[in-house]
Design a protein around this nucleic acid. Structure first.
Lengths: 361, 361
DNA sequence: TTCAATTTGTTCGTATGTATC
DNA sequence: GGATACATACGAACAAATTGA
């Protein structure tokens, strides 16, 4: 029932510190003085004081006295939450924009941002996850690494969930995990890109897609859905697939596909990076875009305008807005203590350029 | 000289925990048992144990006993240091490259990166500094905000220095602070850019420079040095200055300068951003680059290749390498406990494009 | 459910050592 | 050097919580 003496004394001294009766840096009464004041043993005073020292309110200096510390000021206001962000890349392609979106939203709400990248390598993802967990981040926004493969770091993700750290995935999620995700509707993205080419009377449409992440699979699915709906078929050689490690081989595959008997007249590209690569390859083969080959791509990045005289027709990626939405959902989850936020799926929209043309025959 | 008894007992118990003689979760002997073992008073045992409890090695449960905690595992491995990085921008222009450099170097050494941007606004810088200090970062790499003005957040910088947190500045430093800096030799950058134009027989050379950061001032200084060495003079209208808030007004100033009686034949630009803006403005005035006006710029960013048929002649900025050097110096400072690292100044080099031509007359 | 043994929690008293001013 | 203040150490007693018989 009644508090122990040392506890009462402790809270009283603490109050005096907070009320600046004992200002920061000043010396508080000596142990023997307190002893008299409270009529308790010296040991009791020492207990009270030692706890306050431990909590950072006081500092003891043998021979000199006990002083009010300023540590507790920092400790107290350290309510600033930290959000960990792990993405495959940080400074390439569309990632700066995404990170800018996250950063702007977080800093507005006085959250801080801890950043790490995996270069689409699960070993680096492991290191990033370990670091973030050690730093006790208050929330995690993670873009999966090689999301279409079985992830060897699932144990860390389990730890995150068990610790009740809000987790939000970007772009895609690991199939094994049931977590909210902020992404584009990639099936739809693949579909509207293909639909557009079909609308331009193309019948032989190829696709270059990535196999190590979910986005690539989804976009391929959209491509197939579109062909299916329009009763079109595709040859095996129409599908050029690659992953992070085999990017060098794409050029050869493109040449093979373009020079083959049944070369497609148009390509859907996984993103602007491969689209740029494809166009470069086509140009060096003496082909013209869009005259000889039509190209439609996804992400609508700065790369869509860097090829002279070509403006890529590309599915818009929300980029900065996606980052902002992710950050907002994360903040919401933390402030409502709900540990998992809503998912948010952006509906894709095709931005028309001049890299695809209508077939006339 | 000799250690106090409680300290010896404490380290002995601690060792047994680390050696798993007392495994995690197990109960350690009771206070009275220890008392017999060590032939000391119960008080001495309690002191030793209470410190171990405070350090997270043990947990006490009244009535039940004292148990080995697993807290110290987390606490122990949390040696991962965090470096705070505050830059004006995070995802624009050359900053993604710089941050990539920092990130790659830090993650290699298992350091983590906390990121914040100021948008060249001192109020946001204040918030960033507060946040970083609260998060107890182990080192700070900061690009100054409006480095040529008196900084209102100097008190925070003083705090950083007093706390002995290693501090490294990027691009420039506040004149009031005596801290190491990783930057380009901006005077030299301005000079070689101007030298190059003089070498092309230009005699009337204008400069567009920024006034709110040191880089702008330094580059202007290099420009003046160069003119001076070559016995050239400049008109007042040759110097177009701007700051973060007055960027909108540049266009008008350019028009005024170009249409004036004594229009320069060449421009040195603070960076590729204004160079691109300048060229755009010139083109829309019906002028040609480099035929009518030569342009030399600084930073050699991706913008130097985005204007159709023009490849900016631009002083190279180390970008990613600069980030890496900054990160390396920071890690060195932390690991050597030296609290301030060396400065590192990159020597600039001009990358020749086709945006400047030799005057023939 | 109760009770007794065990274990930690609180509090007193006393003495001597050591650092600071 | 001397006074003051914290550090270490001993001893003793009772209270409160836990555990298991």
């Amino acid at each position: 029932m009644s508090q122990p003496k040392y506890m009462m004394i402790k809270t009283e001294i603490k109050q005096r510190i907070l009320d600046k009766v004992y200002p920061i840096g000043s010396r508080v009464p000596s142990e023997s003085k307190f002893q008299e004041d409270y009529s308790v043993s010296r040991h009791t005073i020492r207990l009270a004081i030692s706890e306050l020292v431990n909590e950072g309110y006081l500092q003891k200096r043998q021979g000199a006295g006990t002083f009010v510390s300023d540590d507790f000021l920092n400790g107290q206001t350290s309510i600033t939450k930290t959000i960990g962000v792990i993405t495959t890349y940080v400074s390439d392609y569309i990632f700066p924009s995404i990170i800018r979106g996250i950063e702007s939203e977080l800093s507005q709400k006085q959250y801080s941002l801890m950043l790490s990248s995996t270069h689409n390598n699960v070993k680096k993802e492991k290191i990033s996850l370990e670091t973030m967990l050690q730093q006790n981040v208050d929330g995690l926004i993670i873009e999966p690494t090689k999301s279409s493969y079985l992830n060897p770091n699932l144990n860390y993700y389990l730890q995150i969930l068990q610790r009740k750290v809000p987790l939000l995935m970007l772009h895609a999620k690991y199939e094994e995990l049931d977590v909210p995700v902020v992404a584009m509707d990639d099936v739809q993205a693949g579909k509207i890109a293909t639909d557009y080419l079909i609308g331009l009377k193309h019948k032989n449409i190829g696709i270059i897609t990535k196999t190590d992440d979910q986005q690539g699979k989804q976009r391929l699915k959209g491509y197939i859905n579109s062909l299916n709906e329009n009763n079109l078929s595709f040859e095996n050689e129409y599908i050029i697939s690659y992953d992070t490690e085999s990017m060098d081989l794409i050029s050869g595959k493109i040449v093979h596909s373009v020079k083959g008997d049944k070369a497609p007249t148009a390509f859907v590209c996984y993103n602007d990076q491969v689209a740029a690569l494809l166009i470069q390859e086509l140009l060096s083969l003496g082909k013209k875009v869009p005259e000889d080959f039509s190209v439609v791509s996804i992400d609508n990045s700065y790369l869509s305008t860097t090829i002279p005289s070509i403006r890529l027709t590309s599915v818009n990626h929300p980029k900065e807005e996606m980052g902002k939405v992710a950050a907002r959902l994360m903040i919401e989850a933390i402030e409502n203590n709900s540990f998992d936020s809503q998912s948010f799926i952006f509906q894709p929209e095709l931005i028309i350029g001049n890299s695809a043309k209508k077939l006339t025959e």
